[in-house]
Write a protein that binds this DNA or RNA. Structure first.
Lengths: 160, 160
DNA sequence: GGCTAACGTTAGCCGCTCCAACGATTGAGT
DNA sequence: ACTCAATCGTTGGAGCGGCTAACGTTAGCC
């Protein structure tokens, strides 16, 4: 056995909204990472692929804005996607500072797979809640982040 | 100005529960850290002080169980609290492997202050929500973490 | 043409969580 | 009584995620 005696977390801590958010987020990230990890992917891979399918080929700066991935980190993400041939990175002939990142057919197919895995993870995450409650939760969280989000072009925060 | 054009995050990403949780959590942690940081404290300080006031003097292992702070990291937390004289660390005469950590009167007073700061942070965090909605949110999050929590003595996760 | 700004890239820091190992101490088994 | 396993506090370090700083390159402006 390990420890046991009164492993009770005080209610004052247990019901702290910020703490609940933190714990829920940790579990969520773990579930997502495990699900996508099974397909040799990380959450940022999914985000980038979605952004590409949604708005077509784009520069890395545009992708950064649409996904919330930091410029510095996007480099590695595109590297990983490119070496798996899910994406193609080519210099933009119109503006030679930029790269044009394009979704390959293989990438589009992979995106389908990731979507399924991701959906399963969300399902597992929300499994204790009814459909109504899930909508409530998403709605409330959306209000929260919308309120605290810069909302202007520059997003200072994460984007998990 | 920075970038601007169509900084629109695809809805498929924006409404992902796991992503919303991540962003909300990030904002929450930032608000809490800023609030407590103004009083030279970190969230774990608050957690430890609460646990001590709630259940009286305790060994570090017991504190770890009650707060969710990892054994390894609790050492530094107690160090910081002790050097601020909010807590006293003494060897347990009954079991010389253990330390008994005791809340000092100064520590109890400091806890009051941190509580106020923390409450203010929670208030700011939840400001866009009505009282009803806040209760809903806390309730839903509680269900989520309860479901995904080990619930046995050993908690494998965080405890933000 | 010279200044400013954007782009992609690299390197590194910081905070956080977690694991592995250690010496000291305890309690149980036989 | 002695051995053995387990617990406690502590240390060091690995790993990750988000972020800043700087650089060379390229574009646009006046």
């Amino acid at each position: 056995m390990t420890t046991d005696e009164s492993g009770a977390v005080p209610a004052r801590l247990r019901n702290l909204p910020s703490r609940l958010l933190g714990q829920a987020s940790t579990h969520a990230q773990r579930l997502v990472a495990e699900a996508l990890g099974g397909a040799d992917a990380r959450k940022w891979h999914y985000a980038a692929l979605v952004a590409l399918e949604e708005s077509g080929p784009a520069s890395q700066a545009a992708l950064s804005g649409r996904t919330g991935i930091h410029r510095s980190d996007l480099v590695a993400v595109i590297n990983e996607l490119a070496e798996r041939e899910l994406v193609e990175r080519a210099p933009d002939p119109g503006d030679r500072r930029r790269n044009v990142v394009t979704l390959t057919p293989l990438g589009r197919r992979r995106l389908r797979k990731l979507e399924h895995l991701l959906d399963a993870a969300q399902e597992e995450l929300l499994s204790p809640l009814s459909h109504q409650e899930r909508e409530q939760l998403v709605h409330l969280l959306g209000r929260l982040v919308a309120h605290h989000a810069p909302a202007d072009g520059t997003m200072g925060a994460d984007g998990r």
